[in-house]
Design a protein around this nucleic acid. Structure first.
Lengths: 229, 229
DNA sequence: TAAATAGTGTCTTTAAGACACTATGGA
DNA sequence: TCCATAGTGTCTTAAAGACACTATTTA
């Protein structure tokens, strides 16, 4: 039996609209560490893997326990296992972290716990984090942006129904560049990722846009033979 | 301290030329299990992580110990941690496997140990493997093929210098389709991934092709912020 | 000079992008 | 009626693919 501990951490992304600046940006929840090492620092939510628990279940459970969030998209990111991840001399056993990343919808994000020990921060400009968590966030952001270009994960940020303008905004916020509405519409329609509900979004002060839902048949991402894991 | 063991396994790919059929295909080395569970079955090379060892070092060490191979490309693939990976009832502790995948050059592959307990098999059509290793191989193949389309890892299968026809053959064998030589040449040249050495490959029974090497500046794959890990 | 592969030129098809235009509801 | 955003049409550009053609070596 080895003296290595195994834990799961998760980087969670959600879109947040700041009413004061009228800008939407990427945010993520962080938890404050309540023991050494890095006591008092911000860190990714997570915890040790239980004996009888699959890794993704650990991710879901710790997410639920610390932030009360349940994600619409959850995928394994990378396993960080460097010997020197914790400050030397090591006060505890070596810990290997299997890291997941998750996307949650705005309504879900608003329901989440937020207190002294749980806070949302801008993902672009996070505070210094415990352990190698800053590197992890940077990598998760890179994966999110990369994957956004060739998959449909953007839809995981939105609710059941949405307008094409809303979907486009997700891309614009994450990729940090504007997209041509006309070309965007054509691409999305050609991809077959969404279908019109038949309803319109009323209440705006202009022509009401069509509402769409994402097509059942189409998965959010093609993860090859791992779709069922 | 948990009762979970952590191990590293590696899927290794190399190209092999079968002189009898004059066909080149993807092969990988397997090791025979010498204890229960799955005693006598073929499995991926690997072993437990040592206390003072980074995960990629475990991959390199176990590769070297069992097959005497040292890879030109090594990347983390996925961490497999399902509770029911081993047959029930569980005879030992639960094992979580951090899996790497590796590419080796043909010369390297030929130098490798091959005996009663180590054998090379066609990656397309592997025998039934121990644990979930068949799934793992399937996923590694998918990643190899996917990544081949947008990165330069193909070069990791070749030696210091190579002709464009050799590089093209790597793509053709892995992707299992033929590529237009003219268009292939243009794409590779435009990408800036290779540069001519100035020499020609002599000894063929036709016009001698130019030799190329891969450009120092260009990395084999863009793994974002994880390039240094 | 024939065979074989190296390497070039050029046309077609497809996708991405720029951008002018029409449509429709609310103030 | 004007404004804002929804949604359409169409031209330009870039990349991918098909394929005819020339070049250079060995047998």
């Amino acid at each position: 039996m080895s003296g290595i501990e195994i834990a799961v951490s998760t980087v969670i992304f959600a879109l947040r609209h700041d009413t004061s600046t009228d800008r939407t940006s990427l945010w993520m929840p962080l938890v404050r560490r309540v023991r050494e090492p890095y006591e008092g620092s911000w860190a990714l939510p997570g915890g040790p893997v239980r004996e009888d628990e699959d890794l993704s279940d650990t991710a879901r459970r710790t997410l639920s326990e610390t932030t009360a969030l349940s994600p619409t998209y959850l995928e394994q990111l990378y396993t960080f296992g460097h010997v020197a991840r914790a400050p030397q001399p090591v006060p505890g056993p070596r810990v290997i972290s299997v890291v997941y990343w998750a996307l949650v919808r705005p309504e879900e994000a608003e329901r989440s716990i937020e207190d002294e020990n749980v806070a949302w921060r801008a993902a672009d400009d996070p505070p210094a984090l415990a352990f190698d968590h800053s590197t992890i966030v940077e990598y998760a952001l890179w994966r999110l942006r990369t994957k956004m270009e060739y998959s449909r994960i953007a839809q995981a940020f939105l609710g059941e129904t949405f307008t094409l303008a809303q979907l486009r905004q997700v891309y614009e916020v994450v990729l940090q560049r504007t997209l041509d509405p006309a070309n965007f519409r054509r691409q999305v329609e050609a991809s077959g990722a969404v279908e019109p509900t038949g309803d319109y979004l009323v209440g705006g002060r202009h022509r009401p846009p069509k509402l769409y839902r994402h097509r059942e048949a189409s998965d959010l991402a093609d993860n090859g033979p791992l779709t069922r894991l």
